[in-house]
Structures are given as structure tokens and as C-alpha cells.
């Protein structure tokens, strides 16, 4: 299925070539006219012909968090740093794939039999961990994976449980999937689908879009952390898996345009699309940059709840992914007539 194809592509922030090429082909199949800008953002435009309808920008980031090799030890182990925010506690005992050639590596640490009491309590930070590709010495390792090589978790997608999927990079290939769905669905006016780069290292790709895109409003398609299992207190759960797409009021980087948000909510309600608010405010995304680069634009974020986000094994529900796409498409259908209400 298409989500699996998208998560199979590599695209760590700063090295999005592979996912960009795949998305370009898929966007073109869906009638998108594609360009790539100076940051590497992929822009797919599709025009329905109605010039009176507002220009709508849909944005999702195609980059993912990952690792980058920073040095090679004499014993052939690779030193690395995370690209984007990865909690060091998810690193130990995980396999990775390095470079375009997908060289396999593992991140190990001292075996438990050899650990002292103190060892066991200590969090190993990224600078105390290494990637092992099985090389015996420095020269060999350097040839295969020189400093600058990007690595991703070796964690392919898999359906499990009842209607759930686990994979790396659900953040934000899910949003990219929704953009492709919107291109297929179509829009009466001019639609711009922006697959941005470098969201995970500071919303960088999105920051330049405001300078040359001529949109009237922006919808950001994202994933958001769900903290709803493991006996978590009510007020820290953020949102729930299988409760629908999240239409948030605000997060760390933006406050949703009130009328756009409430129009979005009414459309979800009348179309029977499951949706929910966010119960704990956290996280940032491209909406902050897109709302405010240049003249102000109404913006709102639609997110799919995702457990263990930024880890090798993030989890989301198929129905929530579907709800995000359904709501986006229903909104596109309603937008030409709803625009007056939004602008009031």
C-alpha cells in the first residue's frame, strides 16, 4: 500500500533526494505540475480552472529524523549525531541503514551481564553510542560510510493489531500521503501541494515558501504525539489513537485562524469524519513559518495521532490516516463557498 512505499524511501533532513524523487513521480501521475526550489522543497501545482476560488496551499514535510556519521574510530566503529530531535533512550540495540547503498549497521552498548548497578541507571547519550557496521578497522569503515553519511532506522512498515501500522518515518509520510490523495481528488481552483524539507531541524524548508508562493490560506498536514497508553494521567495524554484526525487550536509555533478552524470542524462534523482536539499543547510544525512568512495567511494544522513519534517504531491507526485525507478532501470541496465565511 502507498504509505508503505513512502516510508520505504529515505529522506533524513538535509538529504531528501530519494523521497523527493518518488513523490515527484507520484504527484505527476496525479496531474501535479512539479518544481523543486532552492531549498529542495517539492512543489506540485494543480489547477481546476476556477480563478475565483482561493489559492490553497497544502503542506507536509517529506524529511524524517535520522542520524549522520560524524567520525570513524580506529576500531572501525562509527560516531554519529542525531539529525532532528531523537531521545537517546530509543537508540540502544537498534539496526540502521547507512547511505544510498543501505549498508546495514547496529547501535549496541555494553552487554547487561557486564553492567554495574550504576551502568543500569545511567542514560547513554548519543555521544556515548556508536554504529557498528562490522568493519575491523578505520580504513575499511571510512570507505563504506565516510563522515557525512546519513542513516535511518531499519524499521520497515507493518500492519498489526486491529487497523494499526508501525514504521519509522510516519512523521510525516502520513501527511505526504494526504497531499497525494488531495491531488487525486482535485480542487475547483488552484491547489499548491508543498512537500517541504528540513522541518525536523527547524522548519527550514517552510520558511522560504512564503516568499514566492501566492496562496490565500494554508493547511498543514502533520502527525502529532499521542501519549494515550501506559497509565498516563488524563491531562498529559495529548490526543488518542483511533479517535480521529486532530484539529488543534494551537501549538508551540502557531495559533490556528479561528474561523478557518471552526469551518474545518463543521465540515468534519457534517461529513461524519472522526475528529478530536489536542488535550496538551506541545510540538511545533511548518504552520508557524507558513502563517507568517510575509503577509499573514490563515492557517490550520490537521494531525494524525502517532505514538512513539521520532522513534524507530511509531504507531498510527489506519482510520485516523483515512480521516485526515477525507477531511482534507471534503474541505477542498467546500472551500470555494466557505471562503467568505473564513475571511469575515
Amino acid at each position: 500500500m502507498l504509505l508503505k512505499e513512502l516510508t520505504a524511501c529515505r529522506g533524513v533532513s538535509g538529504s531528501e533526494g530519494e523521497i523527493r524523487a518518488r513523490l515527484k513521480a507520484l504527484a505527476e501521475e496525479r496531474g501535479g505540475v512539479c518544481t523543486v526550489d532552492r531549498m529542495g522543497n517539492l512543489i506540485a501545482r494543480k489547477d481546476g480552472g476556477d480563478a475565483s476560488a482561493p489559492h490553497v496551499l497544502l503542506a507536509a514535510h517529506m524529511d524524517e529524523v535520522g542520524l549522520i556519521v560524524t567520525g570513524v574510530r580506529d576500531d572501525g566503529l562509527l560516531r554519529y549525531k542525531p539529525v532532528g530531535g531523537i531521545d537517546p533512550r530509543v537508540m540502544v540495540s537498534k539496526p540502521v541503514l547507512l547511505g544510498d547503498g543501505r549498508v546495514p549497521g547496529v547501535i549496541g552498548a555494553k552487554a547487561i551481564h557486564l553492567q554495574s548497578e550504576a551502568d543500569r541507571d545511567r542514560v547513554l547519550d548519543h555521544d556515548q553510542l556508536y554504529i557498528d557496521i562490522g568493519a575491523k578497522a578505520k580504513a575499511e569503515a571510512e570507505k563504506l560510510c565516510p563522515p557525512g553519511t546519513y542513516a535511518v532506522f531499519d524499521s520497515p512498515p507493518e500492519s498489526f493489531g486491529e487497523g494499526m501500522v508501525v514504521s519509522r518515518a510516519l512523521d510525516d509520510r502520513i501527511g505526504c500521503l494526504t497531499l497525494l490523495s488531495a491531488l487525486s481528488h482535485g480542487y475547483r481552483g488552484h491547489m499548491i501541494c508543498a512537500f517541504t524539507v528540513q522541518e525536523e531541524v527547524g522548519l527550514r524548508g517552510a520558511k522560504v515558501l512564503g516568499h514566492y508562493l501566492e496562496h490565500d490560506l494554508v493547511i498543514v498536514l502533520e502527525t502529532t504525539a499521542a501519549n494515550d497508553v501506559g497509565d498516563v494521567p488524563f491531562e498529559k495524554q495529548v490526543c488518542g489513537v483511533k479517535k480521529g484526525v486532530v484539529i488543534s487550536h494551537m501549538d508551540a509555533t502557531s495559533i490556528a485562524h479561528p474561523r478557518l478552524r471552526s469551518v474545518m470542524e463543521s465540515i468534519a462534523a457534517s461529513a461524519g469524519i472522526p475528529h478530536q482536539p489536542k488535550r496538551y499543547l506541545s510540538g511545533g510544525n511548518d504552520a508557524g513559518a507558513l502563517q507568517r512568512a510575509g503577509e499573514a495567511k490563515p492557517a490550520v494544522v490537521l494531525s494524525v495521532p502517532c505514538r512513539y513519534i521520532h522513534s524507530p517504531a511509531s504507531v498510527a491507526a489506519e482510520m485516523d490516516i483515512q480521516a485526515q485525507a477525507d477531511l482534507t478532501n471534503a474541505f477542498l470541496d467546500a472551500l470555494p463557498t466557505a471562503w467568505a465565511e473564513i475571511c469575515k
Binding site: R38, M39, G71, K81, P147, G148, V201, G202, R204
Partner: peptide, 22 residues
């Protein structure tokens, strides 16, 4: 070469995202 996995703490940071990107 030096590897920097994040935004560099230099003027290269604001240069890269000036206007439509540099």
C-alpha cells in the same frame, strides 16, 4: 570537512533561508 547535523550557529543559518532560499 566538519559535520553539523543541525542549524549551524553562524550567519549561514539566516543566509540559507533568506527570501526564497540561498
Amino acid at each position: 570537512t566538519s559535520i553539523c547535523p543541525r542549524v549551524t550557529w553562524t550567519d549561514a543559518a539566516s543566509l540559507q533561508i533568506a527570501r526564497a532560499g540561498v
